[in-house]
Design a binder for these strands. Sequence first.
DNA 1: TCTGTATATAGCTGTCTGGCAATATAATGA
DNA 2: TCATTATATTGCCAGACAGCTATATACAGA
Lengths: 128, 128
Amino acid sequence: MNSDELNRAFAALADPTRRAILARLASGEATVNQLVEPFDMTQPSISKHLKVLEQAGLISRGRAAQTRPCRLEPAPLQEIAQWVGMYTTLWEASFDRLDAFLQAPQPDQPDQPNPAARAPGHHHDQQQ
Amino acid sequence: MNSDELNRAFAALADPTRRAILARLASGEATVNQLVEPFDMTQPSISKHLKVLEQAGLISRGRAAQTRPCRLEPAPLQEIAQWVGMYTTLWEASFDRLDAFLQAPQPDQPDQPNPAARAPGHHHDQQQ
DNA sequence: TCTGTATATAGCTGTCTGGCAATATAATGA
DNA sequence: TCATTATATTGCCAGACAGCTATATACAGA
């Protein structure tokens, strides 16, 4: 749950073209040209987007002849799911418990709040 | 699951200062000055961050005397959780099923892939 | 009304970003 | 080796962004 990784992952996902590329890759590997095709955009622009996605760890690239097939790498998405998971108590908590939650020691440390508040059983136990 | 909302939410979360602000707000409302305090940063800079968070819908602000208490708004986080959720099949799938998944019709439409692939039962049924 | 406190806005700067066209590199196949 | 195809890199530009200082606005209390 490194901060830099989250920075890069979130920043990469902030662009709709890049999210569309990931959506495409979710259905299987694709070459750069295949990824260029659906977009009204030049190949260098897509290559730049791919570089951003790669540096964020969201994709990896192999080699097959002269193509560089792109594959989706789920790890950063998992990290994001985990990060967002720390806030799920905010909307999972039932109405009458909401205030208690707001008072309770919730995620607090800049960038690594409370990793133990994920499961649907919403246990309140935690450190610090 | 509007694209612009996701753009703003992801972009807002790409900054560690803003994520730290959210972490702080997860434990309850706070005034601007209270949010400034833990950071080695000027008040106008924090106010700017708050504006970004507000425009992303991640926080809202009330009025109490001359303070403007900030409150965390979970809706965009829920949208992100939902968006990421569409990719969970990629790592929930067991090893021997992975290839099948990569062949199967997965999230594809730019920015609104397959909303029906969330639950832990990982059902393969879906449209198109 | 005046003072102080809380917050917002304006203006500046350097850096990052997303797009493009043009060009370079890498691997294939003849 | 040469031509072709696939991809990456470079250089350019306009706009966004994060930080700062200085200043403006809003409200409270005397």
